[in-house]
Structure formats: structure tokens, C-alpha cells
């Protein structure tokens, strides 16, 4: 029957239409634009080949943007994972108290980044902020968190770490709980101490989780925008300007569409590499569940 043959296509067509119009086609269009010079208003799009790319990578501002993005990502991902791992090993217990603690550390994850950004701007206020009050309490001098180029990127990383720890901790706890109990009993019988058990046993068993969190951490950090847009606008002196914010500014403030698209294509390549790794892992995780 022909109806049976058409039906599957009808069922997937609305979704496929949305994906084609708003994801697949735009990606192709962005690659096309990256090879053109266009200011958004002019009717002409001049083909310039790879000029946008070569200009981009030789530009001081863009190199700074790349550096900022890499430093931010390295700081955020490594610190989040280390702290979350420690918390997970400690808080991986049952009981009302531990359930409450897990909920509390997770709560920033579901709050809008707008509120998170504003709350931390207030906490990091140089004159009246709670963070500096806390430092002064221990006799330490006030820190100009967001207003000094030497601390601004780190301050944004702190916010991201604070927001991300809960999610990472809960994923680690899920990973810990999937390790079979009897392995530990065997280790206990052998008289292995706790630190050795952790390094020799827990850590290797957690390595898929560790790898998974590293990859999605990197992908997410590369896309950071909201905190920068609200807290620093890329400043002071370009110290917190990162990839997506740069594309946004070049597209919407300077109307250099070709330039912004070329930066987008570079970001696409970087994200694709990590996403392919992520998918390999996701397929494995689902398989195990």
C-alpha cells in the first residue's frame, strides 16, 4: 500500500523542515557568507575567498579573543571538574540531609543566567560587594573583580564554576553509584587504604564520566555569552571578549557580516571536533543504561 510508504515521511517532515530551515541551511549560508564581504545593507555581496579568514587570524583583537576563550575554558572546566569530583565522593550518601545538599548545590543550574550574572555583579561590587567584605574580614585587601583586566576573566570563570558544580557533582554521583559494590569489598579485604582505592579503582571506573563532563564542559564554555554581555561587555580593555561575544559585536554593531561569519565558521570547526567525541560517548552511555 502506498499510504504505508508515505506515512513515515509525513511523520518526520515537520521536524525535518524545522531542522533544515533553522539549522542546516543557516550553517551553509554562514559558510557562504564567510567568503564574502558584506555590510548587511548593500545589495552587493563581494566574493573575497579566504580573505576574511586570513585577516581574522592576523588581527590582534581576534587572537586575544581566542586566547581569552581558551583560558576561560581551561580554568572553568578543570576547576569545576576537580571540585565536583571531591564533592561527589564526599556527598555520595543517602539520607535527607545529603539529598538537600545535592539539591542546594544544583539549584544555580536552573536559574536564568541573567539573574546569576546580576547577583554576582552585586556580590563582586568593588565598594559594597559581599566578596570584598569577606576578604577584608581576613585582613585581605579588596579586589576589583570585574573592573580590572587582570581579574575580570577569572571572575567570570568563578561564576561559571559556581553555576556548573552542581550539575557536574550529580553526574559524578551517578557515575559513582554505577560502580559495582563488590569491587570495593575485594579492595577492603586486601587492606588497600582509601586514597589508594580511589586512585587505583574509583578514578579508572569513573573515566567515561570524567571524559563526558570534560567534553560538554568545553563545548559549553566555548559558547559563553550571557555573563559577558551582562557583566563586562567584553571589557575592561578586551580582557573578557570571547568568541560568541565577538561574533555578536561584529555582526550587530559593526555590520561586518563576512567577518563575523568567518569567526563563526572557526567556532563551528572547534565545536564539531568536540561534539563528535561527545556523540561517540553518548551512544555508549545510552547503550549501558
Amino acid at each position: 500500500m502506498t499510504w504505508n510508504k508515505i506515512r513515515p515521511y509525513l511523520m518526520i517532515s515537520p521536524a525535518i523542515l524545522v531542522f533544515s530551515l533553522f539549522f542546516i541551511y543557516p550553517i551553509c549560508y554562514m559558510i557562504y557568507l564567510s567568503m564574502h564581504d558584506w555590510n548587511f545593507v548593500s545589495p552587493e555581496k563581494n566574493f573575497v575567498g579566504t580573505a576574511n579568514f586570513t585577516n581574522l587570524v592576523s588581527e590582534k583583537e581576534f587572537i586575544e579573543v581566542m586566547q581569552n576563550t581558551f583560558v576561560y575554558t581551561a580554568l572553568t572546566v578543570s576547576l569545576t571538574i576537580i571540585i565536583a569530583l571531591i564533592l561527589a565522593v564526599w556527598l555520595n550518601k543517602s539520607g535527607t540531609i545529603y539529598g538537600f545538599v545535592q539539591g542546594a548545590i544544583f539549584s544555580p543550574h536552573i536559574i536564568s543566567l541573567v539573574s546569576i550574572s546580576m547577583l554576582w555583579m552585586w556580590l563582586m561590587d568593588t565598594d559594597y560587594g559581599l566578596l570584598n567584605w569577606f576578604l577584608n574580614l581576613f585582613g585581605l585587601p579588596s579586589v576589583p573583580w570585574l573592573t580590572d583586566p587582570s581579574t575580570s576573566l577569572l571572575s567570570l570563570a568563578i561564576v561559571a564554576i559556581w553555576k556548573g558544580i552542581g550539575f557536574n557533582t550529580l553526574i559524578f554521583i551517578a557515575g559513582l553509584q554505577s560502580i559495582p559494590r563488590d569491587i570495593y569489598e575485594a579492595a577492603a579485604l586486601d587492606g588497600t587504604n582509601r586514597i589508594r582505592t580511589f586512585i587505583k579503582l574509583t578514578l579508572p571506573m569513573l573515566s567515561p564520566t570524567l571524559f563526558f563532563l570534560t567534553i560538554i564542559g568545553i563545548i559549553n564554555s566555548f559558547q559563553v555569552f550571557e555573563t559577558i554581555s551582562i557583566m563586562t561587555q567584553g571589557g575592561p580593555i578586551n580582557s573578557t571578549n570571547t568568541f560568541v561575544y565577538y561574533i555578536y559585536e561584529y555582526g550587530f554593531r559593526f555590520f561586518k557580516i563576512g567577518y563575523a561569519s568567518a569567526a563563526g565558521v572557526i567556532l563551528l570547526v572547534i565545536i564539531s571536533i568536540f561534539t563528535i567525541m561527545y556523540f561517540r560517548l553518548l551512544a555508549r552511555r545510552v547503550h549501558y543504561q
Partner: peptide, 24 residues
């Protein structure tokens, strides 16, 4: 093929395609 297309979409964040979608 269509499932692969769907999975490719999963890897494209909004932060990457806002400019071409805006122009569209």
C-alpha cells in the same frame, strides 16, 4: 539519512547560527 540530519542538528548551538538565522 534523516536521523543523521537530526543528530547533526543536536550539535549546532543557537550561539553559532544566530547571525544567518537573523538575516533569514
Amino acid at each position: 539519512f534523516f536521523f543523521a540530519l537530526t543528530m547533526i542538528t543536536l550539535m549546532i548551538p543557537a550561539q553559532l547560527i544566530f547571525l544567518p538565522v537573523y538575516l533569514q
